[in-house]
Design a protein around this nucleic acid. Structure first.
Lengths: 114, 114
DNA sequence: CAGAAACTTAAGTCTCCACTTGACTTTGCG
DNA sequence: CGCAAAGTCAAGTGGAGACTTAAGTTTCTG
């Protein structure tokens, strides 16, 4: 894995490792929300929410824009895609290995049969 | 999200948030390995590796079996599937929302056009 | 303009986590 | 048997991270 990819994975999975941040994402998949709204839903301070938001933004999981005094947040699909890609890569590597293993076992079975 | 699902997600994403643990998974997708082998590859102590292993096992990402004095580790696909499922759920929710949004915007365009 | 609303920033606290060292147990081997 | 290999367990240490409170800043609103 390339270094910048590893760092991206670090940021994404670290961001997803916190239940409150995952709740923020789940909320935002249903539509945009302000910082205050997210804070109210989580039951934590606005300050804490802003800190979570920074982590999510660094992982490219969320984007936000401030208009007037209100900051509105929405999903950024880039981070989700990164995480899905990493998981899919592991799963397919593993499945390919199992395929090769099956082939070897088949060959051995044939040899024993002959 | 149900509580036990949230706890499973906590364990899985927390496990994946560490670069060394991800390296262990990447290694194990290519085939089984012993604790010592994993430790050597990571460049950390065997003790540290055992601790990582416990985290990965609790997340159902890895299984291990001890025969003689050697513990051999291999991938357990359950955790990977959990993580992929959570991510896919978020992505599809978000995509459905965008579809509905598109429909609304189309309607508005039609009304303006008429 | 005054004051409230919505954030932002900084600092402090407390907990969790990754890692190490060192002592111990179990197994294999000559 | 005697010793090395492979792993396990228990503290201990240093740093990251999730909160909070408190003090700003900027932007409405009457």
């Amino acid at each position: 894995m390339l270094k910048y990819e590893a760092e991206a994975a670090d940021r994404v999975f670290h961001a997803l490792a916190d239940a409150n941040r995952r709740a923020m994402i789940e909320r935002l998949t249903r539509g945009p929300a302000t910082v205050s709204e997210l804070a109210a839903q989580l039951g934590v301070t606005v300050a804490a929410t802003v800190q979570h938001l920074r982590v999510l933004q660094d992982a490219e999981l969320v984007r936000s824009e401030k208009v007037g005094r209100v900051r509105t947040c929405q999903i950024d699909p880039a981070g989700l895609r990164n995480a899905e890609a990493w998981l899919r890569r592991q799963r397919t590597t593993w499945e390919h290995r199992l395929d090769r293993l099956d082939a070897v076992l088949d060959d051995q079975a044939k040899e024993q049969g002959s």
